[in-house]
Design a protein around this nucleic acid. Structure first.
Lengths: 385, 385
DNA sequence: GTGAAAGCGCTAACAC
DNA sequence: GTGTTAGCGCTTTCAC
């Protein structure tokens, strides 16, 4: 039949006896085309199975309506939720999205040098990855629009939360429940910048926790703070250390929900009832948190991705984005893993949600079957301003 | 300083006193360029901050080294793992990946009509989404390479598992542990094709479960089978129904790990000990399964994505991909959520690990302490066909 | 070795 | 309204 070659606009023009300009107008729905002509062209398009070349169109128009989003460790639940939020918006706005998953500084640098070129993507969204000055400079130099999510970058629109405040909220929640021996389990920024991506959210949250304790006049017991490599497995080990002490904490604040999973596992393994003997609060409110009844400091994950995407779209539309720093709200969500501590339990506001999910169980460890993770799940991200 | 306009290859050529052809050769590392010339060009490139246009290169070369991957419900853990596996391979092979997340038939159709155009992406990977004949035809017509993962499509390379066999394996695991009252909880294909994406894995797994029971001479109790809308919440409700019966099951096979989470929640809520009073096995082996000690039928999620990507790359490299149908192996992974049933427990191969972690806890609910990724056990199935 | 020129497929000015 | 033509930025013969 037809030539094996894909039909192009010239073929259509020839076959329908018009010029390429007219075909282009028809394809793009321009107004000034006679109906009869339009119909004929459309018929030929149909018959030839003509599909405009996205590449050629992009080259001619100077924009590909494509954005790139760079995320660390794609499989981390919090990251996926942010990504999903961004994709929804981008898709609705008619942008294609190329996803760049970064697992190492090497990969990060690779993308950071490849992405700042126009005619590859119109703009980029960086999620949770601390950026170096030279990274940012490259984007600016190439005038490729950039926005970040969950990480502060000077001079670049960023959508973040206040991690220190979040840490404070978690601690205050526990304090309000009457706890005074409150442990903290989180991760620490690796010294080795060649191997670490440098997430610092955990440290910020720890700061908030310390401030809350100090403000409440609760003596800080450095022994109750454990930070090390990221991951539920480490969190689990740290928890066992804390619970094995002669004076164990009655509550633990984990720097992320994923780490809180490790805490729950340890409690479960040691037969420590949650929240009966130990209250646990996490951070993020990943989907799983609701499922297992984990109290947590909620940050709007999907919304953060969506906001980042919206701001990038605004930038691409030539609009101003102000203020550069967009701070998202945090909320303490009490579920079944935190409860009042003895007499001191002043006002444990048992939310309906918790009621519904854990009420009948009384003191039994709300939920999870949790165990022994030898396996990573997510990695937290930080903010830096 | 320089003109605000981005430098292009002509600028570089002019500035270095050579022709564009030569610059192109230098950029692409062609052999026939004198060292002196090469150096000079490179210097100018550096000085001008020249970055080749990906779009122009792609248009000229006829390939964008970009593939699209279409996935349903991005936030589902199993989907994310497949995506991650694919991204790793694609990235290593130097392909960019545009991710298309589909939540409704409308979106699916949108992508299915937009993707079959060359010059947009070189090829596409469809994950878990049943395709209509016309969808597939569009790809073939446009000769856009297509491969699928977790869904069989005639005439298209697909990487799948045998769901029926998986269902059988789950049931046999439970039967081997001495259970005879085994419930099934899964989801059902919606009749409304306008709203449903039509996933059928659950029904296939149910088939396998039925066959295993029949083969073992265990009477099928239709009352123990519950299928409805997808999601842990429904699974939870179904579980409550089953456990509320006068003759509750002693074990439940959930069509997916996510649904198994709902089963565990229900058991927890009703204070039914797992695995003491109820054994639970899921399907997939998402990361979380190991964390919470859920026994499950493992399918290589990341590997499936990686394989799909490899096959697409092969296709793009002009190689043949045979056989079209690639069957991945399944494994039963016993963790802490399944155990032998009373006297009937003939040969409950209690893994040492579980023994160690669960023993002391006796009857406490939901408790699956346990696992390490090292807990692989059992049977394997599948391979090739 | 290297320059010139012809595409790659489309859009957008600009005539008619 | 519609045809023509000049780019968009790069690759790739094909002479020299």
């Amino acid at each position: 039949m037809r030539s094996s070659r894909r039909a192009n606009i010239a073929d259509v023009a020839a076959a329908s006896g018009v010029g390429v300009g007219t075909v282009s107008r028809v394809i793009n729905g321009a107004a000034n085309v006679r109906e009869a002509t339009r119909l004929k062209v459309l018929a030929v398009v149909e018959q030839l199975g003509y599909q405009p070349s996205h590449l050629a169109t992009s080259l001619a128009k100077g924009t590909a309506r494509t954005v790139a989003i760079v995320v660390p460790h794609l499989t981390a639940p919090s990251v996926v939720q942010r990504l999903a939020g961004a994709l929804t918006v981008l898709n609705a706005e008619g942008y294609e999205t190329v996803v760049c998953s970064v697992d190492s500084p090497t990969q990060r640098d690779h993308f950071m040098s490849a992405l700042p070129r126009r005619h590859r993507t119109d703009g980029v969204i960086v999620v949770s990855l601390p950026l170096r000055t030279d990274h940012v400079a490259a984007f600016r130099r190439a005038s490729v629009p950039l926005v970040t999510v969950d990480v502060s970058v000077r001079g670049v629109p960023h959508t973040v939360i206040d991690d220190a405040t979040g840490g404070r909220m978690a601690a205050e929640h526990l304090l309000a429940l009457g706890h005074t021996r409150i442990g903290f389990i989180g991760d620490r920024v690796q010294r080795n910048t060649a191997k670490s991506l440098g997430f610092i959210a955990s440290e910020r949250r720890l700061d908030g926790y310390r401030r809350a304790l100090a403000a409440a006049g609760v003596p800080a017991d450095q022994e109750l703070v454990r930070v090390g490599p990221y991951g539920p497995a480490h969190a689990e080990a740290f928890t066992e250390e804390l619970l094995g002490r002669p004076d164990p904490p009655t509550a633990i604040f984990a720097a992320s929900d994923t780490q809180a999973m490790g805490v729950l596992s340890a409690a479960d393994r040691l037969d420590v009832a949650v929240p009966g003997q130990l209250s646990v609060i996490g951070f993020d409110d990943i989907r799983l948190a609701a499922l297992i009844g984990l109290s947590t400091v909620r940050q709007p994950l999907e919304e953060s991705g969506a906001e980042g995407a919206r701001r990038l779209c605004a930038l691409l539309a030539g609009e101003q984005v102000r203020p550069l720093r967009q701070l998202l709200a945090l909320t303490v969500v009490q579920r079944g893993s935190t409860t009042g501590q003895g007499r001191a339990a002043t006002r444990p506001p048992v939310p309906a949600e918790r009621q519904a999910q854990c009420g009948p169980r009384g003191t039994t460890p709300c939920q999870p079957p949790h165990p022994h993770p030898a396996d990573q799940i997510s990695e937290r991200a930080g903010d830096r301003s």
